[in-house]
Design a protein around this nucleic acid. Sequence first.
DNA 1: CAGTGGTCTAGACCACACG
DNA 2: GTGTGGTCTAGACCACTGC
Lengths: 230, 230
Amino acid sequence: MLDIEQSLRNDIIAGALPLGSRLRIDELAGRYGVSHMPVREALRVLHGEGLVVIEPNRGARVRTVHPGFIEDLFDVRTALETMLVRRAAERRTADHLKRLREAQAHLEALVAEGEFESVADANRSFHTAINDAAGNPGALMIVDRHWLLLSVLLRRYGHGEERFQRVIDDHQHIIRAIERRDSASAATLMGAHIEKGKSNLLLRVSQDPQIADGATHDRPGGRRLWLAAR
Amino acid sequence: MLDIEQSLRNDIIAGALPLGSRLRIDELAGRYGVSHMPVREALRVLHGEGLVVIEPNRGARVRTVHPGFIEDLFDVRTALETMLVRRAAERRTADHLKRLREAQAHLEALVAEGEFESVADANRSFHTAINDAAGNPGALMIVDRHWLLLSVLLRRYGHGEERFQRVIDDHQHIIRAIERRDSASAATLMGAHIEKGKSNLLLRVSQDPQIADGATHDRPGGRRLWLAAR
DNA sequence: CAGTGGTCTAGACCACACG
DNA sequence: GTGTGGTCTAGACCACTGC
């Protein structure tokens, strides 16, 4: 096993630690066989990433989400990724373009083969390729954090498999805009692309507002996710 | 004195710890009279905020900046604050509007009285009032971090006092757009407003690329800021 | 191989929350 | 007041850098 920070992150994303569950320092220290200091460190880092919320003197929990939070998340992603794709269109080199096409080809292959499990990663690779080409490491770090939060949600609410073909289509148009260095079009297309993702996720989430049993762990008050986060 | 984290942050912003200077854990621990663990913590937090860069096994330094970094910084601010002002225009209440007008009145008063030292804070209050009205705490946190980095630069390169009157004018137009809930105009105005700030700062910075003596501390290689950060 | 950065242990200690 | 969260000390120890 790697360090406790990565273990915790994995356990949250994989759902072993459900949304809203308490994260007791000493308990985790015992579980992972370390002292409490590394656990505290890890919790602080994950707090910085947004996966964990820490209430002063009341302990840490896995972040809980509600529709407003998801909208906020996507507002930030839209704002940053439209800016990044604009820069990517301006600054891309032939090499960036190559990597971008490879990422897209990989994604298309996975969809064709029905490997829907891996599509989320491939989709992220596509977006990362664009954001790399933009050459703004600070923005890239922020967007990466948001992908991390997003992956927690996608793991629970699926990716809307029926719409993969439309995602591929969107991507192809975005690639073409980047090819011809058409930054305005690229930004418009990216904005719409992310907006669709937001709308689809919110729809799926609203159709299944109940959360699996584990999520109410330590939260006897209610079974719904939406009311917990502030 | 408060905790070491805030002390460090203040010392960096105030310039007591120049850009690029080394931050040795044991040295700081001795200086502030604590053990090395709290210092390590503080450095990690400031690293998360972007004020400090940590090179693995090579120690920590105060962040160094170069023109490209400033552009990246403003790209993120523009992307996020235009989004936020759009939401603010949609969601603002009468109370938000009141606070916004108060912040603006305060800023105008300071400029009228020639209190240029405090204008930067008042300017930030204005923007914070808008971002609060937008109601996206995650985005607000990111923007706040960028203001922190910005304040390090402003402290060194001044605020371009001659343009305060134009800032006031920009703000008034933005307020009016928010008043009439015209989110598109508000976003356009905000984009231009921040773009001006970026352009002015880059100009001032390029006119004075040399850095005060202290900044070359521990970096015998060169006196210029621009080449150090990667 | 010396120096330094970086992390962990083990335990003391304080502050707040909750019953 | 008791429990728990949260921080600090002091020191051991490992890893990597740069002579």
